[in-house]
């Protein structure tokens, strides 16, 4: 199979208007990927599927990734003449500027060919931002295996896949409002104190203990279902 660079060049020749970038992968796996723009996404996908030398007929895996806004500190070094001007020595002035790199959501597609038994070709698509422009073209019309996986990404990350035949939440219930796999998702805090908690849970539990109402008082008022807790102590395998 041709290398990713060759594939990028061939795609650029075929789709001159498209923006296609090579994203290198510095890990030991060294599987580089192609970042393609959303506008030409569907055309490129169809081309990859039907091209006789590639025949990427099998979309194995679709992954959603959240890249939140990142604060980047640029250090620009400028050389200025020494104000003292004694021996013509120069002084290096460091200027720090911080800028916010806007975050985005990303969908990664791993494509293989079952007919020719090669792969993977990795495609990446990025949304414009994380809040309102979160639309990407759906590849479900090209590869049906994307169906549930794109629904899952819509559910957990909030990417809206255009032309998906049935874009509903896959895992959470339909009334759910959040996108829980995003990095800034705050889960509902329903941790209570327990004797065997550890680490992060214990910290949350401690915080709850300080803020919550006195708990011992609740136990004193017997509710209508208070009979079962009384029997707990008689079990040898009672909850610790």
């Amino acid at each position: 199979m041709e290398t990713v660079e060759q594939l990028r060049d061939r795609l650029l020749a075929r789709f001159p208007a498209a923006k296609i970038e090579l994203v290198t992968n510095p890990s030991a796996a060294a599987e580089h990927s192609l970042l393609i723009d959303a506008a030409h996404g569907r055309d490129i996908a169809l081309f990859l599927r039907d091209d006789p030398t590639l025949r990427l007929d099998y979309c194995s895996n679709v992954t959603g990734i959240d890249w939140p806004d990142k604060e980047i500190t640029d250090i620009t070094k400028t050389t200025v003449a020494d104000p003292a001007g004694a021996s013509g020595a120069t002084k290096v002035v460091e200027q720090k500027t911080t800028r916010i790199q806007p975050g985005y959501l990303e969908a990664v597609y791993h494509l293989y060919s079952m007919a020719l038994k090669h792969g993977p070709v990795i495609l990446r698509l990025r949304t414009a931002n994380r809040s309102d422009a979160v639309t990407l073209p759906s590849f479900t019309p090209v590869w049906r295996s994307c169906d549930f996986q794109e629904r899952e990404i819509y559910d957990l990350y909030g990417i809206i896949f255009e032309c998906h035949p049935d874009l509903r939440r896959l895992l959470m219930w339909y009334e759910f409002k959040d996108h829980p796999m995003r990095k800034d998702y705050v889960e509902p805090d329903d941790y209570e104190w327990e004797p065997t908690a550890h680490g992060a849970i214990l910290e949350k539990a401690k915080a709850n203990r300080l803020t919550s109402a006195p708990i011992a008082g609740d136990a004193a008022t017997p509710g209508p279902g208070s009979a079962p807790p009384a029997t707990k102590s008689s079990n040898t395998e009672a909850k610790p």
């Binding site: 992968n25 510095p26 890990s27 030991a28 796996a29 599987e31 194995s60 895996n61 992954t63 990734i65 990664v108 791993h110 993977p120 990795i122």
Partner: peptide
Amino acid sequence: RPKAGEAYGRLEGPKGELGFFLIS
């Protein structure tokens, strides 16, 4: 602590292609 990067590994599980995609 692996180096930054990503990898997709897969094998033939009893139910089909079982893959993991990790980004470090």
